[in-house]
Design a protein around this nucleic acid. Sequence first.
DNA 1: CGAATCATTGAATGGGCTCAAGGGACGTGG
DNA 2: CCACGTCCCTTGAGCCCATTCAATGATTCG
Lengths: 264, 264
Amino acid sequence: MRSRLLNGSRAMVIASAHGLAPFIDRLALRSVLSPGEQDALLALPFDAITIGARRNVTRLGEISSHASFVATGLVGRFGQTASGQRQLTGIHLSGDMADLLSVVRPTGVGALLALTETTILRVPHRALRAAAAQFPAIAEAFWRHCAVDTATLMQWLLNIGRGDAVGRLGHLMCEMAMRFGGEREYRLQFDLPLTQEQLADATGITPVHVNRSLRRLRELKLMTICRKRVDIHDWDGLVSLSGFDPDYLALDIGNRPKVRLLSA
Amino acid sequence: MRSRLLNGSRAMVIASAHGLAPFIDRLALRSVLSPGEQDALLALPFDAITIGARRNVTRLGEISSHASFVATGLVGRFGQTASGQRQLTGIHLSGDMADLLSVVRPTGVGALLALTETTILRVPHRALRAAAAQFPAIAEAFWRHCAVDTATLMQWLLNIGRGDAVGRLGHLMCEMAMRFGGEREYRLQFDLPLTQEQLADATGITPVHVNRSLRRLRELKLMTICRKRVDIHDWDGLVSLSGFDPDYLALDIGNRPKVRLLSA
DNA sequence: CGAATCATTGAATGGGCTCAAGGGACGTGG
DNA sequence: CCACGTCCCTTGAGCCCATTCAATGATTCG
C-alpha cells in the first residue's frame, strides 16, 4: 500500500512534466515496471489534441496508426448496426489508453466518441510496438491492460444479456463508482456527464426507458442522478440489485502480490 | 494464398506428431512466426484430458495455472448472475486456445464449459510466459489472438444489446459459418451440437424463444437447424437480416499483408 | 431572451417471458 | 426388440417489461 502511494505521488509530480505519466501509473496498478521500463514509456512520443463533446476521436472502420490516451475527459467506444443504432462497448476515463488494442488490431474494434470535451494524447503505434519489442515486461503490461478491458466486456455482456433495465443501470453505476474511486475505493458521488441517450447506448435500452428506470432507482432510494451528478444512497442495495462484483475490474491488486511474468 | 495452403498442410502433418501444431496454424493465420518461433511453440509442454459434454473445464472464480487448447470438440465461456442465469461470452472451436487471456489474468474472466465431448490440451502458464518473454513475436501473436477474441466480444455486445431475437440467432449462425469455414470461406452446412438452451445462453434470450425464433428463420426460408445440423439456405438474406460483417473475425487476412510488429 | 437539446411523463403497442402441456429422439435396461 | 425414462424440442395462452409515439417541461447555451 505504502509503495503504491509513493508511486502515485511520484507519478503526479512527473505528470506536470509529462502527459503520459498517468498511463504508467495505470499500468503499474496491475503490472510491475522497472525504472528503465518506465523511462522507456516516458520516452514515448505523442501529440495532444482537444476534441469537443459528441465528436468522434476515431471513426468506424478507420485504420488507425495511433493509440489514444485519455488525458482529461470521457470517451466511449461504440459499435453500430446497419440501421444506425449504437451500442457502447466501453467507457474510458481519464488515465485510460482507450484503444491500446489497435496496436495489434488496427481495425474492426469500433469507433471512439468523446462523451465530453476531451484531451487526447495520440501515441504512434510504431513507438508502442518498439517499446513492447524491447521490453517484454512492457508487452506484458500492454497485454494485461487489454485483458482488463476484455474482462469488462464479458461483464457488460452478462449484464446486458441477462439483466433487466434497472439492474443494467445499477451495474454500470457501480462500475463507474469503483473506477472513479481508483484502487480499492469507490465513490458514492461523482460527475457522470452522460445524457440519458448515451446511458441508453451503454445499457442496450431506449432513452425513454432509461428515464423510467432512473426514476425507479430513485423510488427504491438506491441512487439519484441530478444534473449529471450521480449520488449513490445505498451502495449495498445497489450492489445487490445489480449483482455487481468488482473482481473483473482488477482494482484490488493492492493487497495481492503484483505479478511480473514475462521477464526472461 | 499458396503459402497459406502449404503452411496449412505442413501443420496437418505435424499435427499427428504434436497436438499443438493446430495452435501454431491458428496463430499463423494472423501473425508471422519464424521457424525458430514455431519450434519454441512446438516445444511447449502439455497434457491432454478428455471432458464429457456439459462438464466444466474451469470453474467460476478459479485461479488457473494452465491455458486450455481445444483439440477436438466445442467449448463455451460463460458468466453467471447471482440467480444462476448464464450468459455465454464466447464459443471456442477446435483449434482455439480457449483461455489464453488467463496467462496475464488468471482469474475473473468467466468459466469454461465443454459443450460437447472435448479433448483439451492443458498448457502451463509458466511455459507460455517463458515463450512470450523469449520471443517478442510470440508475445505479439498471443496478444493478437486475445485481440480477436475481444473484437468478437464487442460484436456480441452490439448484437445482444441492439438486435432482436431472430437477428441475434442469425448473427451467431453467420459467425459460426465463417469460423467453421476457416480462412476466407464460409460453410452453409455444419454441425452445431448445441441445445436450444445453450443457444439461449449465447444470445441472451430464453430457450422457448429460441425455438420460436428458429421457426421464424425457417419460415423466412433463411436457415434450418435439424438434429444439431445447421443448414443455411439464403446466406445473403441471413447476413442482411442480422447485419453480419465478418471483419471482426479477422479471417480475411489472406489477401492482406500479415503484420509482424514486435520484432526489434 | 430565444433556440436547441435534454429530461419527463402518458398511452398504446409489441416482443419476449413465464407457465404449462404434449410430442420426439435417444439411450438404457429388461 | 420393446418398454421405459430422460432430455430436448415444440406449441399455446396470458402476462409483463420495454418500446414507440407524442407532448410538455426543464436546462443549457449562444
